[in-house]
Simulated assay, not measured.
Amino acid sequence: MKSFNFNEIKEYISKTSKETSIYVGCDSRQTGDLTVFVSVIVVHIDSCKGGKIFYEVRKEKRIKSLKERLLKEVDFAVMTALNIIDVVDDRNLEVHLDINPDNRYKSHIIVKEAISYVLAQGLKPKLKPESFAAYSVADYLTKR
């Protein structure tokens, strides 16, 4: 298991310009009798240059319910964002959700709940196809 070092992350963010964007997301996968969650913080320098990725891995007993697993992803992303919110200041902060609003996809079942929860925390949600921190970065790390 790998955990965030929020002090290190906050220090890194505080040294970036106000033009920097921060994207937070989470994805999961089922493996054997476990569900593996990977939460990420992507710091995009000046919103146009390179960036840095911080990540955390959590393993839990296999979650059989898709809805429960997706809601946990949303919760982990929100909690991660709230842990760094005090150093974000005027920087762009988005919570990226691995949820497809198109009803042809299974993840659409929690669109309303997920968006409402993120907004209720004062955060900005992004869904697929705009949520690359979750569906690309975190997804990649779940497979490692």
Rank of each mutant, 00 (worst) to 15 (best):
I9V: 05
R91D: 00
F4Q: 04
K67A: 12
Q30A: 14
K2D: 07
L70P: 07
I110N: 10
I45E: 08
Q30K: 15
Q30T: 09
T35N: 15
G51Y: 00
L34W: 10
A134F: 11
K52D: 14
S3E: 11
G50R: 12
H96R: 07
L70R: 04
F132Q: 09
E19Q: 08
E113D: 14
V40I: 14
K143A: 01
I109M: 13
D27F: 13
V38W: 05
R144H: 06
F37M: 10
V118N: 03
G50C: 05
A120Y: 10
I85M: 00
L71F: 02
I45R: 13
V42E: 09
F76C: 01
R58K: 15
K124I: 06
E68M: 09
S107A: 05
F76M: 03
C48N: 12
V40C: 10
A134V: 11
S14V: 01
A114M: 08
V42K: 14
E56N: 07
D98P: 01
R69K: 10
E94T: 11
I41N: 05
Q121A: 11
S14E: 08
V40M: 08
Y23A: 02
N7R: 14
L123I: 04
H108A: 15
S28L: 11
V118E: 08
R29V: 10
D27I: 03
S47K: 13
L141N: 08
E130T: 03
V38A: 12
A77G: 14
I110W: 05
